[in-house]
Design a protein around this nucleic acid. Structure first.
Lengths: 224, 224
DNA sequence: TTCATGCTTCGATGGTAACCGAAGCGTTGC
DNA sequence: GCAACGCTTCGGTTACCATCGAAGCATGAA
């Protein structure tokens, strides 16, 4: 049964580590799960037999990746159910620091930097938020035009809200979604501040050195 | 962890028995799983604590049902993965023929007819699919407007893809999910082609006589 | 009240599987 | 050749948890 495979904490940690789409070696996965290589080897053969992961030999390394998007989708679903009950596993969210820091969520910025950005906008009254509803203020509109050359007209869409709060997987706090969230992410890419990781299937967003500085200056946070 | 709950064979059998959407008593579930009532009781409290099932007291009976469609959806997904490896549990898919033919998966159409629909769309190049990604073609958009009065603008959603492949529990093949899948199911209901079974909690979708004809005409399949 | 039914709690038992140490095997590099 | 490295296999230990018998606690019927 597939569920029992995912049910074991060690295996669940391994699968979580593979959720970013990249392949990892057996030893890396062992370290992720906090177990010895020989135990990990046993787990990995079971996961492979169950069709959840696929191996790829490369020299003396063995890389493992999730079999396909169906597997990833079911794992997301399970994580979703787990999150509802509040009975989250101890290790919450992605372990990969890069993935934690900045990643793509659909088409906008998520992770540490995404949360920080929304915090900054809220703190300086560039947006107003109550619950999931976010509203762009007049100052906010001026800010966007001045610093990011984003005009409010570009943002309206028949069915999609301009601003929306999106719960962050790793941070458990909100980041900015909606057409504005997407437009800002696109602008960061155009300005060469950041780019999606070239690895196929990766959700990591890499910031350049200067991009990170500019970003930090623009979205400074009072608490830091 | 949710997965470990589903992982136990006895609990899995109970959940499978509940997959038709109806509520069953504790003793019935014990019999389904082939265990004594006291063991079943222990399992049921765990499933309830995990948020997978909900109890309803009625006299000296306790009826249990799946919490909601999300739970059913994730269970479908797990069953789909299990089916792929050939390591199916003895009880394969839904027993009820009506459930096999057409049922609700989250908010879209699943079962024999759901799979047939996506097959037809793909075959006539109304959608393009590679793996889990499905894309609506220009012809597809025209088709939707002409035959189902569904305009593409209605479909965009900040957090949900328009099209998505969803692995079918009984058929082991994909059917159509996403906002389009939901919109089409809704349209079928509005056109009185089909309706969810009135039994509370049931996931069966009943097609009317004329509805079935219209559906078959619209989504004819070359192989049949 | 008294009894029957449906379900839960308690306590003890047993089987399964995760886990690690040690040894084995294949690959890479010197 | 030899050594280092990455991973797997084997054996034995341990911890967890599913399981059931017996008793307890409700509800409903007589």
């Amino acid at each position: 049964m597939v569920a029992s495979l995912v049910g074991d904490p060690a295996r669940a940690n391994m699968l979580t580590a593979l959720m970013n789409g990249r392949a990892l070696t057996a030893s890396e996965l062992a370290q992720e799960a906090g177990i010895t290589p020989q135990t990990a080897s046993s787990h990995l053969s079971k996961l492979e037999a169950g069709g959840l992961i696929e191996p790829e030999k490369q020299g003396r390394h063995r890389y493992y990746r999730l079999t396909d998007d169906d597997v990833a989708g079911v794992l997301e679903g399970l994580a979703g159910l787990a999150a509802r009950t509040g009975h989250m596993r101890v290790r919450t969210g992605p372990k990969d620091p890069a993935l934690r820091r900045a990643r793509i969520c659909y088409d906008h910025l998520a992770g540490d930097l995404g949360v920080q950005m929304l915090d900054s906008l809220r703190e300086r009254h560039l947006v107003r938020q109550k619950k999931q509803e976010i509203e762009l203020t007049a100052e906010g509109e001026r800010f966007l035009v001045k610093h990011l050359q984003i005009s409010p007209d570009m943002l309206s869409h028949p069915r999609r809200p301009v601003c929306k709060a999106c719960l962050d997987w790793s941070e458990r706090r909100h980041h900015l979604a909606g057409t504005l969230g997407a437009a800002m992410m696109q602008r960061f890419a155009e300005l060469k501040w950041a780019a999606r990781d070239p690895t196929p299937g990766s959700r990591i967003v890499n910031f350049t050195r200067t991009g990170e500085k500019q970003f930090a200056a623009l979205f400074a946070n009072g608490k830091e």
